[in-house]
Design a protein around this nucleic acid. Structure first.
Lengths: 234, 234
DNA sequence: CGGGGCGTTGACAGATGTCAACGTGTGTGG
DNA sequence: CCACACACGTTGACATCTGTCAACGCCCCG
């Protein structure tokens, strides 16, 4: 395994304040791994042998119900940790992770989790902060699912994706990984049919432009209005 | 302020492994407080000046949307921490907490949070474990909201309440604090009308007995069947 | 060039919210 | 101690959102 460079992780909150030697030590225990698009990184219920840092790409975290329905829990962007089952006190992964595009990850054996947390304060603090903010996200989502109609939920979901991973283009903000109607449906608790109808309607109104596995938000502000209030007509 | 007894907190995971002096120190900084039924313990968006341990009673944690709709995030039972905004890296409470019955709580100033975590390993570990398991609960709820019909969600919610706070009676398992149709609706993202209809139907089938602010699960197993599978008729 | 994955659209049905009216029992104040 | 008001619960009628079923078109990629 070739030596990995500090710059890969030096800027991330979890590794803040580490000396050069400490970064070396952390990286010496990591293995870097290329993940082809649509490959599973880890599987729900599988033994949580490793935890990961996404260096490049986008990863879809998916939970499946016993009867086979899938729900997309979140998308992970580069620089984020994933597979942190041990931070939740689990020994198996609570969900599956699939590369949405070709990805590069660093992987550490899970037993290093507690060592890192104990040894490097920033690591412990940073990751628990991550868990905390994911808890808040999850609650936000529960609130949305409880109080909003499908149209508002889909609008919110698109706006979040655009903010987190959006890429400015001439037409607007492009969600920069392939995403299907089915994917959006699994994020918002609806069906691909309803998502398709909504996107078509929005396209007519000029709010978005979308095509095969591709969505661009053209009018974020107007979409936000839709996501929030409930203007009957327009 | 009278001296508080070790036995109040000695058994809880967060205070495991502390010496008698340490427990004294922790309790010396706490103030114990009676909370009358329906009183607000802390308010959403309010400054998180304190964190709490529920010694006795039941507390409803509620989030309100800007337009006034409410969602019950969870019920807290005795022995659990609440108001742990600082564990999430927040300085304001993300939700409101209301006493569902007369309660007793211990309250500590929030600035002691980081001191306790640093000083008492079990406290830090225990509370992060709490956050972790709440994250998993929240995800479970997202999955349910995404994939289940209202009837299944309400059944699941009742079963959870019965498990967490149920009291065995001659008729079955009684949820041992006052809970209205409206409350159940706010837990499951539906309306009091639908909940009322469901409970009436279940009562006819002998699965539950319910009355004013009171629900008893008579046939947990059959209710579970309903919550899981989707038997068309019966 | 062809097949399969993705997307679109219409018709329809069913679950659940909305609106409205009416019980009922619990607690309070006279 | 009784009466009454109000919170909580029930139920029907109806509207509507959104899922289901079905058919079809269009690209991409092999």
């Amino acid at each position: 395994m070739s030596q990995l460079d500090h710059s890969l992780i030096a800027g991330l909150p979890q590794f803040q304040g580490m000396t050069s030697e400490e970064l070396d030590h952390v990286l010496a225990n990591a293995r870097s791994q290329r993940i082809a698009k649509d490959t599973t990184i880890f599987e729900q219920e599988g033994e949580a042998n490793s935890f990961f840092l996404l260096l490049d790409g986008h990863v879809r975290v998916v939970k499946s119900t016993p009867d086979g329905q899938q729900v997309i829990v979140r998308y992970i962007s580069s620089g984020e940790l994933l597979g942190i089952a041990h931070a939740l006190g689990r020994t198996t992964y609570p969900a599956s992770a699939v590369a949405a595009v070709d990805c590069v990850v660093l992987a550490w054996p899970s037993r290093l989790w507690s060592r890192f947390s104990a040894q490097y304060p920033a690591f412990g603090v940073g990751t628990y902060k991550t868990v905390g903010s994911r808890l808040q996200e999850a609650h936000t989502r529960v609130i949305e699912m409880s109080t909003e109609q499908v149209e508002q939920r889909v609008a919110h979901a698109l706006l979040r994706l655009a903010n987190q991973t959006g890429k400015k283009t001439a037409e607007g903000v492009l969600i920069d990984f392939p995403i299907s109607r089915q994917d959006i449906a699994e994020m918002t608790g609806t069906t691909l049919h309803t998502v398709s109808r909504l996107l078509s309607a929005w396209e007519t109104k000029g709010l978005v432009r979308s095509g095969r596995q591709k969505v661009t938000v053209v009018e974020p502000h107007k979409l936000f209005m839709l996501a929030e209030g409930r203007p009957k007509k327009d």
